[in-house]
């Protein structure tokens, strides 16, 4: 409303000749300017809305529809996708694989987030101090992020090989273990190993954002604290942590959303094996769609995944809004 009045005030003087031609004129110009204002607004919002609809709305809607269709290879050629109702969902949800994949997804996500966050926080706190080469080292943390995920997983697969992998060579050489540990080929260890690799990849994201958050905490608070004789732990507990909380919640929620849908690392390391030990909802969706070409069921699984991600996205939006409200 306030902007509209500014508009009237500025546009009215620009048309002085109209004023004497009857009292209907100002109202027309007011209406015209309101209309123009609405048009300008639409033009500003338009491209963004168009973009969202085209590149986010359309695929999501398509995916939801696909989940209710018998969408197979034939559909690509004939365009026929018979309506399947809920049958894709019942098939997927009752398949023995779904429960394994769902449980693995939870373990993978919780494990990855915990590890990434704790390591990231530790590194962020460490790099808050200034010391020689701290800048160079801090940028080195970003390295895992600069490597394409598929390359990273290929290299890790080499390093973690049971017999010839570098990690086991070191462990055997130093006398810590007798024979190679089957990091990726044991059903009990594979998920743990995949989580470790994913933590390695996720640390930069956590460290960088948390480090940014730490920078915004005023130094005066710590100075005041030190006058009161706080210990280092008390300073963290009562100054750093409360001040960092908004950033922490954002990091955690975004982390959950990213981790839920991790696909390339798992495919690169284990292909979901051994014996489905590292199968998650994301890999299951991929394999249904692109290995067995049952696009309908694949879409059903990814819709479930989208739904879970959306829940966390809603949490994220709430958390993000609160600081503005306050």
């Amino acid at each position: 409303m306030s902007i509209t009045s500014v508009h009237e005030a500025t546009t009215a003087p620009t048309a002085p000749g109209q004023r004497g031609e009857g009292h209907a004129a100002p109202r027309v110009s007011a209406r015209a300017s309101a209309w123009r204002h609405r048009l300008v607004t639409a033009l500003f919002i338009g491209p963004a809305v168009l973009y969202m609809l085209l590149f986010f709305g359309y695929p999501v809607v398509q995916n939801v529809i696909m989940g209710f269709q018998h969408y197979t290879i034939t559909t690509f050629f004939t365009g026929e996708a018979p309506w399947a109702g809920w049958s894709n969902y019942t098939e997927v949800l009752t398949s023995p694989l779904f429960r394994t994949a769902a449980a693995n997804t939870v373990i993978f996500t919780v494990g990855s987030i915990l590890g990434q966050f704790l390591c990231g926080l530790g590194l962020a706190l460490f790099f808050r101090r200034r010391f020689p080469l701290s800048g160079a080292l801090r940028s080195l943390i970003l390295l895992p992020w600069l490597i394409p995920l598929i390359v990273a997983s290929a290299v890790w697969k080499w390093l973690l090989d049971t017999d010839a992998g570098a990690l086991n060579r070191v462990l055997i050489g130093s006398g810590l273990v007798e024979s190679g540990i089957p990091w990726l080929s044991s059903t009990g260890l594979a998920l743990f190993t995949v989580i470790m690799v994913n933590i390695w990849i996720g640390i930069p994201f956590n460290a960088v954002i948390l480090h940014g958050g730490l920078q915004t905490i005023p130094q005066e608070l710590y100075e005041a604290g030190s006058i009161d004789g706080t210990s280092r732990w008390q300073a963290f507990r009562h100054i750093t942590w409360p001040m960092l909380r908004p950033v922490v919640s954002v990091v955690l929620v975004l982390g959950v959303v990213y981790t839920l849908k991790v696909l390339d690392i798992i495919l690169g390391l284990t292909e979901g094996g051994p014996a489905n030990a590292t199968q998650t909802l994301a890999t299951q969706a991929y394999q249904l769609s692109f290995a067995t070409f049952d696009f309908g069921q694949g879409a059903a699984v990814s819709n479930i995944l989208i739904l879970i991600s959306l829940l966390f996205a809603a949490v994220y939006l709430r958390l993000n809004r609160r600081p503005v409200d306050e």
Binding site: Q62, L263, F290, G298
Partner: peptide, 18 residues
């Protein structure tokens, strides 16, 4: 399509610093 979502996953991860 599900593939697109997954691709997006990767890009989202890389783009989040920005």
């Amino acid at each position: 399509m599900s593939r697109r979502t997954h691709h997006h996953a990767q890009q989202g991860r890389a783009g989040s610093s920005r």
